[in-house]
Design a protein around this nucleic acid. Sequence first.
DNA 1: AATTAGTAAGTAAGTGATTACTTACTTTGA
DNA 2: TCAAAGTAAGTAATCACTTACTTACTAATT
Lengths: 185, 185
Amino acid sequence: MATVIELAAEQNPSEITTSAIAHRMNLTQGALFRHFPTKDAVWQAVMEWVASRLLARIDQAAAKAATPAAALEAMFMAHIDFVARHPGVPRMLFGELQRVESTVTKRMVQTLVTQYSQRLHAVIEQGKTMGELAPDVDANAAAVLFIGSIQGLVMQALLAGNVRRIRANAPGAFAIFLRGIRRSS
Amino acid sequence: MATVIELAAEQNPSEITTSAIAHRMNLTQGALFRHFPTKDAVWQAVMEWVASRLLARIDQAAAKAATPAAALEAMFMAHIDFVARHPGVPRMLFGELQRVESTVTKRMVQTLVTQYSQRLHAVIEQGKTMGELAPDVDANAAAVLFIGSIQGLVMQALLAGNVRRIRANAPGAFAIFLRGIRRSS
DNA sequence: AATTAGTAAGTAAGTGATTACTTACTTTGA
DNA sequence: TCAAAGTAAGTAATCACTTACTTACTAATT
């Protein structure tokens, strides 16, 4: 699984072959099929790994924060950090969403995004009741914008071919987002 | 080219075969190679078509607007409209950006995004000097967020499998974005 | 303690399906 | 008449997956 994520950082995830995975592990291609029945099973295992790790990091970051706005910022930065550490992950997730047929792996990404959105929704609503965020904010739109901001940063990194830069640009993007939902003083 | 964009709306763009394109055009696969030397040449033609049309729509929308903020909104909605009309386009662009090697088509997407960002940058700076937008706004971060918002909406549509809904959710997302860069009264 | 049997993990060389692209030949229209 | 546009049947490469066989180790039986 670590090998697949590593390869996804170096090439188009949909073009990762079983041969490439095995070769990177210093194995022959056939050996891979002693441990996974199909290639799709490999992807399912990888997706499961990604989903659990990412959500755990997000939750951990949010738990430490004092206020809802601080929680959003911590979640944002934790996500950016996760992506910077594993540049192959967003590529894999995007790639899966491209599929039209409802494959098992696509559905796993769908549930991941759903769970992510629910967490955002909860924090935003909490921020509204606590008076930290504007009461007329559309929580759904804010969640979309939150995830979209990260996507935008990732895209910029893909364009520049520089994954490190994503960390430098993240605070600026989040600042605008927060200003867009914060209660005006 | 229209056929490719049509197919990209129905399946993973990277899995579109020359056979599928030809069949949709009621031709045999070989006939396609009378008009294009390679499959990549087809993609280059498609990308050129997309880039010129999208930028033209954006410029047209911006020209009609009275103020910079109105121009941003018009550009946003024009982009959303374009995507809703051609659901295959964002999938193609995302797919190209996934590539690691610097292919001709990837570079075309890169220039498209660069030109797009330059236009956004100009409008935002204009809005700052006219006092409509906050003077301390990071124009680069704002441009990333603008494009990211659209990506977020597209992703939501891909998740739901419903491209129409993107039009309904667009105003809410843009409202938060604008609030994030507008000069506080 | 020594032999035997069984098993998980590996290799190397297939297989059939699919793909972009080619070739030899035919049709069509100005 | 001739060139552009089309067809049908290739071709070589690549892919996921299979098969036949080997190796290293463990457990059970003698």
